[in-house]
Write a protein that binds this DNA or RNA. Structure first.
Lengths: 230, 230
DNA sequence: GATTATAAGCGTAATTTTTACGCTTATTTT
DNA sequence: AAAATAAGCGTAAAAATTACGCTTATAATC
């Protein structure tokens, strides 16, 4: 110890990996990529990168997201550290896994072509390299837990959405049916949705009113002690 | 990329830091240490260490705990990665913070002498080095959130405890008073405590029966869909 | 052009959970 | 023996959750 404190320690490679979730067709989906390098070249993998010398870890995850989807400012949060010494046969690498939530919109096919990426159903995930399956499973657990107490579900929906769409999302997350009428009652009673004049008519004959999540209102309520729970 | 994939990346120092909580005198407490090295020698700090080349990250945290308290097998869980590039003026170090829960028992004074450690009230935490205060605040939040849905509080109590003791712990964690009668009703209704014959008479004239957390019973109930919530 | 089918949307009753709080009990202190 | 204290038990009121019937708007079908 002492003067040599920092010199005596052995540095390790530090990576970030991103578990990217989306929602489409009433299903929760995961974005996976073909690995470009050996070992395991061409196998399905989470997208990741090494953390650069002067780069914040979270910034590295954001960079990876932008490089792999073209999107900035999407929901991104740390999942945890994967630090088993032998987890990567290529070298001693610890990975800080992050999970991201994005709206799947038009560029979906472009994504696939440009980045060799593909959306998988979360209950049909192919074999993944290293400990990536474990990361995905943990991310799913975390998403399920977190979605209940924080309004993060909206990150997966378009800005304007219907109550039935929102319910369908929660049914996908929780993997269980929710009563239409009670769900609507509960979410509306929170008073964090803004009702719009427009209706979405793509999903039903009658059509359903579009709503928007009101972040300011939500934060105001939270400041007064409100707890989101769905 | 390609063959040089791993070679091109720049390795970083990886540390673990431990936020160690205890409970004594109806107060939640935090174990802090005098830092042994420069910079910030002698200032209050979390206990930590660099992750060794062939060591799992979690194992490093466990090693630190054992070296600093003499205790093995205490509750330990990852808190998160602290990865701001400039967080440590001594070098580029990322730290994986962990939080630990321990029973404060006899060796408390020994700890202080042997390891230059001291238990602080969680609402009277002194200035800490680097981003350690931030880590502690996050750990407190996580503890408060997690204690509500997982029976981790028992890790902070002696094996045998009374209902009023348990309530006092939760009052300390949540920083609010809980109704004696409703608290008892709720925790007993879960059917995860085993009532003992003995009474503890140190805290009241009448004395209170001792209980023990029944882990097997708890796990059995969880398997059947039970959700702990306090 | 009327009828049917479908999902949206509104309401109400039953049930369960939470909250508030009174009363008794065992023991120590006065 | 009386008073004081915290443990422990019970019950009623209030709030939240659950179950589910009915109406409505629209597109598809007859």
């Amino acid at each position: 110890m002492g003067a040599n404190y920092y010199q005596e320690a052995k540095p390790l490679l530090v990576a970030v990996d991103c578990i990217i979730f989306g929602f489409a067709g009433d299903q929760l989906r995961l974005l996976l990529f073909r690995r470009k390098v050996e070992p395991h070249q061409n196998e399905w993998s989470l997208i990741g990168s090494f953390v650069q010398e002067e780069e914040n870890v979270l910034a590295a995850a954001n960079r990876v997201l932008e490089e792999s989807t073209g999107l900035r400012n999407i929901f991104l949060q740390e999942l945890g550290c994967y630090g088993i010494a032998e987890r990567d046969p290529g070298a001693r690498v610890i990975s800080i896994a992050h999970f991201a939530l994005m709206r799947i919109e038009e560029p979906s096919e472009q994504l696939a072509d440009r980045y060799q990426a593909h959306w998988f159903d979360t209950d049909q995930i192919p074999n993944l390299i290293l400990d990536h399956r474990e990361m995905v499973m943990h991310a799913l657990e975390k998403l399920r837990r977190k979605a209940r107490y924080q309004p993060i579900g909206f990150e997966l929906l378009p800005e304007k959405f219907t109550i039935p769409q929102l319910r369908s999302l929660y049914e996908a997350i929780y993997q269980k049916e929710l009563d239409r009428r009670n769900f609507r009652k509960k979410i509306l009673s929170m008073d964090i949705l803004e009702k719009l004049e427009e209706k979405d008519k793509t999903a039903s004959k009658k059509g359903a009113f579009l709503y928007r999540f009101n972040l300011e209102k939500y934060q105001e309520l939270v400041a007064k002690g409100f707890n989101f729970e769905l």
